[in-house]
Every structure is written in C-alpha cells, then in structure tokens.
Computed example of a mutant assay.
Amino acid sequence: MLVDSHCHLDFPDFSEELPDVIARAEGAGVSTMLTICTHLSRFERVRAVAERFDNVWCTVGIHPHEAGSETLLDAGTLLTLADHPKVVGFGETGLDYFYEHSPRDDQQRAFRLHIEAARQADLPVIIHTRDADEDTLAILREEMKAGPFRGLIHCFSSSRALAEECVEMGLYISLSGIVTFNKAEELRETVRDLPVERLLVETDAPYLAPIPKRGKRNEPAFTAYTAAKVAGLKGLSAEDFAAVSTANFHRLFSKVVA
C-alpha cells in the first residue's frame, strides 16, 4: 500500500466529492493520506477532513506565502494545536523566493518557529523551498546545531547539493509528479542516487498531476503513477517500493497509527 504524504484535501477543488476522492485513492492502493495546512486561519477545516476519515491525517502550519499576513508570535500556538491526535506534523513552512508573496524576513522567522515546534513536540516539519536553496540550507544547518529535529523536503525539485545535505542531516525527501515530467531528467538523475530509505511520494494535490494525468486536477489516487516512476528509477518493483516508502513515512510520521 502507498501513502500520499502531502495533499490539500481541504481545498475547494475537492469539496463536492471528497468521499469519492478518498475511495478512488483506496482503490488505487493509497491507504493513507496526509492533508497539509497552509493557513493557520483555516486549520479547523484541515483538521475536520482528518477527523472525517480514518485514513487521513493532518498538519498545522503556515505556508511561506502567508508568513507575512499570518504572524506567529512564538511556537506555542502550533504546539497547542498539535496536541490533537490527528495532527502529526508542522507545516508546510519554509522559503519561497520565486513568488515572494511574503517578505523574506517573515518567511525565515516563521520557518524557524515551525522548526522550534517540531523540536519540542518531536514531530516532523514539512519544508517548502523554491529558489531559496542557500537560505534554506543555512537555516537548517543553524537549527540542527541548536538541537536535532525531524522533517522532510516536500515536492522536491531543487539541487542535488540540497538533497544530499538534507539527507546527511537525517531529513527525508518527498517526490511529487514533477519527477515524471519530460523535462525533469536532472531531478531523476538525483533521485537515482538518493538512498531509498529516505524517499517518500506525494501528490501535492490538487496541483502537479503526474504523467499520464498531467493537466488534470491531481488527487491522491495518482500517487501510484509517481511511485511507479520512482520505483523504476531505483530498480525496484512497484510493490517493493510501496513497502519501503510506506515504512519510511511511518518512521518519520510516527504519530500516525498504521
């Protein structure tokens, strides 16, 4: 069975047919889904989705796009909300210098507070990084020196150097449908060389549908296409990679009840 380690099931794209979306995922062998919080102000609806379905879990956090408008004073708010049994991690957080919808200082401060929460709660942090490899690595290095924490780089499409250093730090790498795209050969070469024990798969649904569904609304059932591509890159059968990546997910997200 597979895990979709990053999707957004609270988004309006799914509101009219959420039970069908979950059923299609299960039919495609995706037994567990992690729906990700992007706005602290919308956390209750994220949590409500996780509460509604036994095999859906959630996180709490603020996307870097919202770091300027949804200000965190400290890690306490995140820690309080993470006390819920369905909340298994923090984020997504991190740095996005491609769009820069929020000031860089605000993004960096929020990123550090999410890491602080992850360290205190011993739950993983879900990291978004786009066009910000240097600052992402600088913050991760500094924060790891301050005290270890668990986490992953989600929807990985950055440099080989970032992937390799993050793996050395003990972080995981989550791969989305991007790895199936025709122009993603550099990414595939990096994935071939990463340890399979550090790899997860995700959809980032409703975005980034993999080939052969590219251009359509993405959904958790499509995790199977990404997993098949990664399995091939690692020289594994689909079944073996599913087993390894699912074990990786449960090792990282240890609060999830199998």
Rank of each mutant, 00 (worst) to 15 (best):
H63L: 05
E100N: 15
S158V: 00
V167H: 08
T223R: 02
E202K: 03
V179I: 07
S159C: 12
T226Q: 09
P103I: 06
H65D: 11
L79G: 14
E143C: 14
A110N: 09
S237E: 05
V125K: 12
D106I: 02
V88E: 02
V230N: 08
H6V: 00
Y225I: 04
S5V: 03
V49Q: 09
L2E: 02
V60A: 10
H101M: 14
A231F: 05
I62D: 00
G177L: 03
T71I: 15
L199K: 14
D54P: 14
A231E: 02
E185I: 11
L171E: 07
F111P: 02
E116F: 10
A247C: 08
G177Q: 00
D193G: 15
V60Y: 04
D96P: 08
S158M: 00
D74F: 05
H39G: 07
E66A: 09
F249M: 09
L72I: 01
L252Q: 09
E239Q: 15
E134G: 11
E134D: 04
K216L: 14
R150P: 02
A205G: 11
E100C: 15
S102P: 07
G29M: 04
S254D: 13
E26P: 12
A48L: 06
C37P: 15
L208Q: 00
R45F: 01
V3T: 02
A161K: 11
D13H: 15
S159I: 05
A82T: 04
L236C: 11
P212H: 04
L175P: 08
D135N: 10
L18F: 13
L2C: 08
S174Q: 06
E185S: 13
L34Y: 01
I178W: 02
F253I: 03
F241A: 09
H39V: 02
H250G: 09
A163T: 05
L140D: 04
H154Q: 10
K229L: 08
E44A: 15
R119Q: 11
T246K: 10
L200R: 11
